[in-house]
Design a protein around this nucleic acid. Structure first.
Length: 646
RNA sequence: GCCGACGUAGCUCAGGGGUAGAGCGUUUCCUUGGUAAGGAAGAGGUCACGGGUUCAAUUCCCGUCGUUGGCUCCA
């Protein structure tokens, strides 16, 4: 008999050799029907793996992340089978489950494979699934595993197996298909009711561009057809909210081939929107004790040699600008911090004057690889809502907490309430990647963790993700479609103060080294606007949106009254415009809806007589006929409800 | 940077070896309207660019540029 501990802490006794499925059956029939994966003592097992010792067992269904993982992993076996049947001689490599679905990297050799081939594969995959073939794991010796793949001339699998220990190698069989596999499958293929291929792309063997390029086939599968339909609808919705599409439709920004790739051009409405975002943050920063500074777009190469950026990124940057007479080299600034360090250096400081908080909406230029450019989220010139705080070691904790408060205020005012924090620390195995002393790194990492704890952030510590000069905290925001965005960042830096020889005079009359905090609540304004566009679908918060109201005169006869309304809305600081085109009200409403203007103010004979407005909300809600004063109150109230003061 | 797909009017897209089409937008005229498209007429394109094949290329082939899905990278 073995003792099995369940997640709720209860302990049950089973015959030795019982399987997770047996345990599920013992708990309830419903669970037994739905269980698709299991974890026994921290390792993933099959639902049919016999258990021979005491231990704790967790059962997973489709509703668990690990259940989905087993489901998609199992699906990738089916994908591989279908492709191998249809293209004999291709070489399979790896096929893992990912966040949304799975992929398989395949060397197609002489065959070509494109989206046109999807329907055939999908059809065959569903046939295989319907066969309800059980997934069966079996142990194989290293030698026979190698023989199996050498016979197929599959150097990839041979390479994988060569790295494995003899005695730990397992194959998984289902139907007529066999694959090298560590395990973690659903009971049989019949659970998969819907199967869809999503895209095909190139990927290097083992992620190394010096290796063979393989074809990566992405797919997704579900236990119900309906769930696939819903997923595809979600993808459709994401397409509709694509910031590149909305940016064009709402006339916020554009790109020009002549200007250059990755260099966004902000149109009047977009520029005004940015301006509002910047004013919003400036106001909060002023209250938080920041001072605005301004630095130029280029700096001498020497500046970045001092900062260490040149050594690390120089060759991948925009190349130096040379002056015609003197033999000087300037770089487009990739960071604001070196400039801010020199601003700090402009005069000596006493500890009594710290912290100094220098803020700048600084535009920086980075030579991103052309294949990486994407709308506003990945560009070559962008503006950071940057600031650098120079403080004493004693002030670090408090300053860090203050920055967290500011970041939380920013996220809250923009309706971004789903987020987590990621604390990025050193990779302990690669000390050569970082500059600065181990002692300082430890102090900095601890300061970040302390502050996150105290502010009650949901955070996760990720080793190896730190910048080369210091650890950091990043806010990961979840948008309305559940997608994660990395946004604002707060970074502790002991390195630049050292390199720029920054000092302050302490109470002991000696010179000391300040600590530096880099922080940017938005991160990059470009990227932030992209997030807001996709999060809101273009329906920005009222305080931020380009046009808050549009006045729609019913006919030409009411244009004078419409202009009068516009004037008084302007007096109330409401951004509005008049649609005085020779069109019907129906058409004007339709276009205002498509332009996502929050309020449509219809003015005709009735309104003109009584000096009122008929208010229609974006989306169709009729707010009835109100006076201008009441409308202004309504707008003010709505703005105040989202935009709290800091 | 690498691999695949794509590039036709301002936008969304159809077409296809014999010098171009729709809807929306835009312009003009008619209409003066009441909560998601009133009517009519007109303008607008070196079919991304450069080569090649052909009697003939926007269409087929090659290259370049750009967009895009990934990979790699990301101060």
């Amino acid at each position: 008999m073995i003792k099995i501990t369940l997640p709720d802490g209860s302990v049950k006794t089973f015959n030795e050799g019982s399987t997770p499925m047996d345990v599920a059956k013992d708990i309830s029939e419903g669970l037994a029907r739905n269980v698709i994966s299991a974890k026994f003592n921290d390792s993933i097992v099959e639902t049919v793996t016999p258990l021979h010792q005491d231990g704790s067992l967790t059962l997973y269904t489709w509703n668990d992340d690990l259940g989905k993982k087993a489901f998609w992993h199992s699906s990738s076996h089916i994908l591989a089978q279908a492709i191998e049947e249809l293209y004999p001689g291709i070489k399979l490599t790896i096929g893992p489950a990912i966040e949304n679905g799975f992929y398989y990297d395949i060397d197609f050799g002489e065959h070509s494979f494109s989206e046109k081939d999807f329907p055939t594969i999908e059809k065959r995959a569903i046939e295989i699934a319907r066969g309800k073939h059980p997934y069966k794991m079996r142990d194989v010796s290293k030698k026979s595993a190698l023989d199996f793949y050498k016979k197929q001339d599959n150097q990839y699998k041979v390479e994988l197996i060569s790295d494995l220990e003899d005695g730990t190698i397992t194959f998984c069989d289902h139907d007529s298909f066999t694959d090298l596999c560590r395990g973690g499958h659903i009971p049989n293929t019949g659970f998969i009711k819907a199967f869809k291929l999503l895209s095909v792309a190139g990927a290097y063997w083992r992620g190394d561009e010096n290796n063979t390029q393989l074809t990566r086939v992405y797919g997704i599968s579900f236990p119900k057809q309906k769930e696939l339909t819903e997923y595809l609808e979600l993808l459709e919705e994401a397409k509709k909210r694509d910031h590149r599409k909305l940016g064009r439709e709402l006339e916020l920004f554009t790109f020009s081939q002549k200007v250059g790739l990755g260099l966004p051009l902000w149109l009047p409405k977009g520029a005004a929107l940015r301006e509002r975002l910047e004013q919003f943050l400036k106001k909060a920063q002023k209250k938080a004790g920041y001072e605005m500074v301004i630095s130029p777009h280029i700096g001498q190469k020497e500046l970045y040699v001092t900062s260490g950026h040149y050594e690390k990124y120089g060759e991948d940057s925009f190349q130096p600008i040379h002056t015609p007479k003197q033999d000087e080299e300037f770089l487009l600034k990739p960071m604001n911090c070196p400039h801010h360090c020199e601003i700090y250096n402009a005069k000596p400081f006493s500890y009594r004057e710290l912290p100094k908080r220098y803020a700048e909406f600084g535009t920086v230029y980075r030579y991103e690889q052309s294949g990486e450019l994407h709308g506003l989220t990945r560009v070559r010139g962008f503006t950071q809502d940057d600031a650098h705080i120079f403080c004493t070691q004693d002030q670090l904790d408090q300053e860090f907490k203050n920055v967290i408060d500011l970041s939380l205020y920013v996220l809250g005012s923009l309706g971004l309430d789903q987020f987590t924090a990621q604390v990025s620390v050193r990779d302990p195995d690669k000390p050569e990647k970082y500059i600065g002393s181990v002692d300082n790194w430890e102090k900095a990492e601890q300061a970040i963790i302390n502050a996150s704890e105290e502010k009650g952030l949901k955070y996760e510590i990720v080793p190896g993700e730190a910048a080369f000069y210091g650890p950091k905290l990043d806010f990961m925001v979840k948008d309305a479609l559940g997608r994660n965005w990395q946004l604002g960042t707060i970074q502790v830096d002991y390195n630049l103060p050292e390199r720029f020889d920054l000092t302050y005079k302490g109470s002991d009359n000696e010179l000391h080294r300040p600590v530096m905090i880099h922080r940017a609540p938005f991160g990059s304004i470009e990227r932030f606007v992209a997030l807001l566009l996709e999060h809101t679908g273009g329906n920005f918060p009222l305080w931020l949106t380009p046009d808050q109201a549009i006045i729609l005169p019913v006919s030409e006869k009411h244009e004078i009254y419409a202009e009068k309304v516009l004037k008084s809305l302007e007096n109330h600081e409401i951004r509005a415009l008049v649609d005085s085109r020779n069109e019907t009200v129906g058409k004007k409403i339709r276009e205002a809806e498509m332009n996502k203007i929050p309020f449509m103010l219809i003015v005709g004979e009735n309104e003109e007589e009584k000096e009122t407005l008929s208010v229609r909300r974006h989306g169709g809600e009729d707010l009835g006929t109100v006076t201008l004063g009441d409308f202004a109150d309504l707008v003010e109230k709505e703005i105040n409800s989202t935009l709290k003061s800091f």
